[in-house]
Amino acid sequence: MSPTHPLLEEHPAMRPLVRESWQRSLEALSTPDGLTPPLVWESRELIEFRRQHPLAAIMPVINKLLIEPSHDTGLLIAVGDEHGRLLWVEGDSAARRHGENINFATGADWSESVAGTSAPGTALVLGKSVQIVGQEHFNPAVHSWSCTAVPMHDPDSGLDPGHRRHHRRCGCRGRQYALPRAGHRRGRRGATAHPPPGAPHG
């Protein structure tokens, strides 16, 4: 049995799911010190990538059901691709500014191997919904945040075109994640006849 990393010894009560994620993060990143999720696209590249991405077809549904009600709530709604890269980050304007301080912003890579334990990256690794609260985050800069992520699978193929996330300072409303599924099916069927609708302005 390999020795326990000193950082894990400091958190003996850590949930097994989080502990296993921290172990993977330590293997990939060695230390959480100075960790900043990188931006992987320039603005023009991101706009074009979003326009062609399958999730663009359901963004009007996500906007109506999740983003518009999130204004003035302290809640952020983020939509990323299957690699953990954030394509859209919308919601409360003050929360968006706070998110930019930790690079929780459009174009940033929040995969677990790059950003450490967080709901976005860890949910993709496990293939299921995950909530990471406060100091469960690998990156100390994110300790004031609570985050829930849900991978979204194509209803016909079962493949994972991306995921939807709530990210805010206290609590989450995970029950709302199921709402855009019908819109995703409708959008996918219509995609062959019509270009994907434009995404909300970020």
Rank of each mutant, 00 (worst) to 15 (best):
R50Q: 10
W110T: 05
R24V: 05
E48L: 12
S21T: 08
G183T: 07
L29E: 00
Q23K: 08
E100Y: 07
P38M: 11
L179R: 14
R165W: 01
R96L: 15
T117K: 05
G80Y: 04
G99D: 04
A56G: 02
G190E: 02
E112D: 08
H153G: 06
G171D: 01
R168C: 11
L29R: 06
A193W: 13
P12C: 09
P3H: 07
G183W: 12
E100K: 15
P6S: 11
G158E: 08
R50N: 02
G74R: 09
S157W: 04
H201T: 14
P151R: 10
D72L: 12
S111I: 03
T31I: 10
V79F: 02
R15S: 08
L159R: 14
S118V: 07
V142I: 07
R15C: 08
R175L: 03
R19V: 07
L87Q: 08
P38F: 12
W145E: 05
S25N: 02
L66V: 03
R186H: 09
P54L: 03
G121F: 12
N103W: 03
K64D: 11
E9A: 12
L55H: 01
P32W: 01
P12M: 05
Q52P: 04
E100I: 01
G187V: 04
K64T: 09
S118D: 04
A115M: 03
M59S: 13
E42Q: 14
R96P: 00
M14F: 07
E68N: 10
K128W: 00
A95F: 04
R51C: 00
Q52D: 10
R44H: 14
H194K: 13
G158S: 06
E112W: 02
F138C: 01
A13G: 03
P37H: 02
E20A: 13
S144R: 14
G34T: 00
D154H: 14
S129Y: 02
M14C: 01
T122W: 00
G202E: 14
A108K: 00
T192Q: 12
P37I: 08
Q131P: 00
P69R: 14
V130I: 15
L126M: 07
G134D: 12
A199W: 05
G162I: 05
G34Q: 05
R185H: 13
P16F: 03
H194W: 09
R97N: 08
G174S: 13
E68Y: 06
S93W: 07
Q52M: 08
W41N: 05
G34H: 09
G99F: 05
R85M: 04
M59R: 07
S129A: 15
R168T: 08
I47K: 13
E27S: 00
P120A: 03
A149N: 15
V125H: 11
P38L: 10
D72M: 07
S93Y: 07
D156A: 12
G202K: 10
H201R: 15
E9Q: 14
R173V: 06
G134C: 03
E136H: 05
G202S: 13
G202W: 11
V61P: 00
H137M: 04
A199I: 08
P140M: 10
R186W: 10
R85Q: 06
R181D: 01
R96H: 04
E9L: 13
L179E: 15
E10S: 12
S93T: 08
G84R: 03
Q176Y: 12
E10D: 11
D72E: 15
A28C: 09
L76G: 01
Q23T: 12
V79M: 11
D156K: 11
G187M: 02
C170N: 10
